[in-house]
Design a protein around this nucleic acid. Structure first.
Length: 152
DNA sequence: GCCAACGTTGGC
DNA sequence: GCCAACGTTGGC
């Protein structure tokens, strides 16, 4: 499948994924709908558009590939972490993480305004007003069109 | 910094 | 189980 992951570049940027020497752990999802996608549908070798959010240059920065799925997000067990969840135990934990390897960093950030100019992308969850999901499925057609835009 | 939109909480 | 109040997200 194809996905968009929302990430704050101050935590995990496309550059971080590019420069890492081993797969990067992508963690911090604390929304049940996004968690369910991550747990139940994200599969090894799926391709992911990496969207930078809450930053100066908002938009899609590149592509990563899923390496491992079904991992426990370690931060849910770390009391000092902002992602700590007191209800999580080693026997029973709610929050999942995956690892990512780089595929390609785009030569520019594709802004939301630019994506919105494409009528074929209007159905993308990422472009919906008020959307807060950090893990969103997209169609192959949407994925291919985003890739095409980076070549224009 | 503003504010719309959404998820979560908690009183009843 | 409803729903108002509250907190958070996130683009602008």
């Amino acid at each position: 499948m194809y996905w968009v992951f929302k990430t704050e570049p101050s935590e995990c940027s496309m550059q971080d994924i590019m420069q890492a020497t081993s797969p990067v752990l992508w963690f911090g999802v604390r929304n049940y709908q996004a968690r369910n996608f991550l747990r139940d549908q994200v599969q090894q070798d799926d391709l992911v558009l990496i969207h930078h959010s809450s930053c100066a240059d908002v938009g899609i920065a590149g592509i990563a590939k899923i390496v491992a799925t079904g991992l426990a997000d370690p931060t849910q067990f770390e009391a000092e972490s902002p992602y700590y969840d007191a209800k999580a135990s080693l026997e029973r934990w709610p929050w999942y993480a995956v690892t990512l390897s780089p595929v390609q960093q785009f030569n520019r950030i594709l802004s939301l305004a630019e994506l919105r100019q494409q009528p074929e992308l209007a159905a993308m969850t990422l472009l919906k007003k008020g959307n807060r999901l950090s893990v969103m499925p997209i169609t192959k057609e949407e994925y291919d069109l985003v890739l095409f835009l980076t070549s224009t």
